[in-house]
Design a protein around this nucleic acid. Sequence first.
DNA 1: AAGCAATCACCCATTTTGGGGGATTTTAGA
DNA 2: TCTAAAATCCCCCAAAATGGGTGATTGCTT
Lengths: 211, 211
Amino acid sequence: MKKRIIIIEDNSSIREGFSAVLDTVESYEVVNLYGNCEDALTSIEKDNPDIVLMDIELPGMDGIAGTARIKKQLPNCIVLIITVLEDSEKVFRSLCAGAGGYIVKNSNISEIVQNIDEALAGGAPMSLSIAKMVVQSFRQQQDSPLTERETEVLQSIAEGKSYSKIALDLFVSKETIRTHIKNIYRKLEVSSKADAIKIANSNKWVTGRPL
Amino acid sequence: MKKRIIIIEDNSSIREGFSAVLDTVESYEVVNLYGNCEDALTSIEKDNPDIVLMDIELPGMDGIAGTARIKKQLPNCIVLIITVLEDSEKVFRSLCAGAGGYIVKNSNISEIVQNIDEALAGGAPMSLSIAKMVVQSFRQQQDSPLTERETEVLQSIAEGKSYSKIALDLFVSKETIRTHIKNIYRKLEVSSKADAIKIANSNKWVTGRPL
DNA sequence: AAGCAATCACCCATTTTGGGGGATTTTAGA
DNA sequence: TCTAAAATCCCCCAAAATGGGTGATTGCTT
């Protein structure tokens, strides 16, 4: 059975190019081409694709949101992101949205086919450089105004722990934790847990996941 | 100036092997070898290494905690993890701890030198398979007992938002959020935010970072 | 000596949380 | 279409958590 493929890409040259290439492959069948996510989503059920090649930059709904929508409707469908090396945050977010891998925009025929076959085989096709971008997005903590202890406390806050629980974990009194929190709030110029977490997270001062 | 290198690895064959290999390189100087982190940490200041080759599996303090300690004392020191492909969670955690890259255990001389040079040049050396493991650790959300809405609510909880804030964000009343929370607690068999977050996180039901 | 980090204490008002009821409407599947 | 699940909302209550204020001690580094 031929693998059903759809392509969502606003640049018609690239769209047609990929389509032409993939149509030469015996085991593939390009069932539809779209210039945006909105159009694709209306007929995705009928298209019933095994593979979606998705651009990230798109007019209207972007490829990340589009990936999430598609995975919601067709969980078994594999979305491969067509991309050029750029924003590591976007690469990361698209993975979270359920992207199955990456295809570099100016790949040649054999590379594209290889990527798609790898995806169909259950792998996660991507170039080393793209993988590194994702990895990078976890380190790069810029210098923080918070002390070590304060960071530790804020990390615990981000894990949903109460002041009492944090105090127990760090073997200090609840009052100490409260003082730290006050200092954190003053330094970050916020006055709530949520705001502190948001700032600390966007600056990579905390890890984002429980340690 | 020669780059100072120390090796922390409990397997003496591997330790001596790496050392012998690196000593043949003109620009490197292996200044010390250790079988565990504890010993290494006592004299790390004197060793003043540019590069640390660190095993993950170690008696006593493991390589992840060791990496964190070393980065705390010598922030500019680059820690490269010596590893075999195994646990993606450990690979991820070591990155969070500040690891600068990975060296596969049975690499040959030129690969090792290449990895170290890449690290010194500011890169993040690692094999494609290791990078993929990290990437994998973000998808693979197993099936959750939570509904979409409940997941959305729990995600917000993990971001430190109060019920009121979540209600505002989702355009529903605070009472609705409370009901969702109750259902989440019942399904996960917990009775606190922290516990719910911990479970949801370990099962990848929430992303761990604000969306 | 001054500054900073970390520790702890007590006061206060307000908000949040968790658990117990019960109810309606919308959605989706059998 | 009937039904079950999901999502929405409301009330009560007590306990806990939170945020802000003021103040104090210790120890370390500069």
